[in-house]
Design a protein around this nucleic acid. Structure first.
Lengths: 237, 237
DNA sequence: CTGCTTTCGCTACGAGCCGTAGCGTAACTG
DNA sequence: CAGTTACGCTACGGCTCGTAGCGAAAGCAG
């Protein structure tokens, strides 16, 4: 359950082999070459992978989660349905891979103040959530994840957790500037990061996807003020 | 689009008539009796309504959103599938009604301090989100709502918006205690309430349903501190 | 070039669910 | 009593799922 579980998902190497733009560092400890060229037979078409993931995002944007059909994606990607099932065991996993790369565009800008940095990230995230592919996929994936711990784990590894890096970066920058006190207890700092992350992600998602109201500059300012709490916009002692 | 739209959903009076324990105040301006007894013909079985909603919640808890089938619910409620469709046009609307009542148990306790009140509500909400019915339904409904504005509106009216009352109550209590300054601009106060609500709801949902980690007393304390910001646990200044 | 291996495209299939139609019956009103 | 509406039941076409079987294509080893 904790290691690389090579016997699991035996017929779906794509799940572990094709992170089109996401996670890195993935080597099988038995292969001496490092790149793990398993050679034999006809190689999988990388073009097909891209076509499938593109078709998934496009269909997601046009027809939403409910309209996304394996057959539909296959047709659009000009690929046989069986080819799709050879790489992804189900719609859920396919969409995780298709959507994960969209989140890679989020970056921590380092604009010189913690407030500006937070506001910038919030705006970026809001823009991402405004895209129809993201909107159609994210909550549906989260919903599926509540019933399938394995899927939830994949979602967290591919989509959610990588973004916690942003919080860490922002914190570090603010600490370097002296806006934040340096970390004391490392585990306490971790919990703090988790709280900040859940708060930003959850709040913006709720605002955009549930309340259905836009993220305006004014809202961003107010929310950031709420987050910063004791540190108002002009850094008073 | 903005009024009561009587011509819409013409064959599904249950959608407008049977809020089993939710919203109130619903009168057709043409009926003189107030209770709007439309008399003629065989009346709908109220027992069937309850049986269907119970069966929906039970199935939701056992099989999750994906396992919830109209035929399944009908069988479990000992009701014909057609009876189900006579009252709810689709699974989505059915689940809204089935789940909405669960949220009525949330109450604002007024424990004597804003901090205690917030923590109590957070714990209540976390307990609600821990229930399998809620867990299976909430995010799935939100996801469907992103594609169907009408559904999103229903979700907000039946599930989300009623809970904003809690924030208003807590604010009022805190203002009565002098913990919070009285409202100035009423529209600004409204936006403030929206932000607080989205923050609490979104964050707890994200923590429980996405990150999948429990809401401990320690977490609640930390999160509340983040929310309170300039007002630490002992009311200084 | 000749095998060997793996992928690919295609077709077909049983299963399950959807939402509706049709019918005869039950319940309630005047 | 007649009139009206709800109910249970059955059956249906349409769609999606996920799998199986086939022949052909694309690489690699000798």
């Amino acid at each position: 359950m904790s290691a690389a579980q090579p016997p699991l998902t035996p017929e779906h190497p794509a799940v572990r082999e094709h992170p089109p733009a996401a996670a890195a560092a993935r080597e099988a400890p038995g292969s001496p070459d490092g790149a793990a060229t398993r050679a034999k037979g006809r190689p999988r078409s990388a073009a097909a992978d891209l076509a499938i993931l593109d078709a998934t995002r496009e269909t997601l944007a046009e027809l939403g989660w409910g309209g996304l059909t394996m057959g539909h994606v296959a047709t659009r990607a000009k690929v046989a349905k069986t080819t799709l099932y050879r790489r992804w065991p189900s719609k859920n996993e396919l969409v995780v891979d298709a959507v994960a790369s969209l989140f890679d565009e989020l970056v921590m800008p380092d604009l010189g103040s913690l407030r500006a940095d937070i506001e910038a990230v919030v705006v970026q995230f809001a823009d991402l959530l405004a895209r129809p592919e993201t909107q159609a996929a994210l909550l549906a994936l989260f919903a599926e994840g509540t019933r399938d711990p394995q899927l939830r784990r994949r979602i967290r590894e591919a989509i959610v957790d990588p973004q916690k890096h942003l919080v860490r970066q922002g914190r570090a920058a603010a600490q370097a500037r002296g806006e934040l006190a340096p970390d004391g207890d490392p585990t306490a700092a971790c919990e703090e990061i988790d709280i900040i992350f859940d708060t930003i992600a959850g709040t913006v998602e709720h605002r955009v996807l549930v309340s259905g109201e836009p993220i305006t500059a004014d809202w961003t300012r107010r929310f950031t003020s709420l987050l910063l709490g004791p540190f108002p916009s002009p850094p008073a002692a």
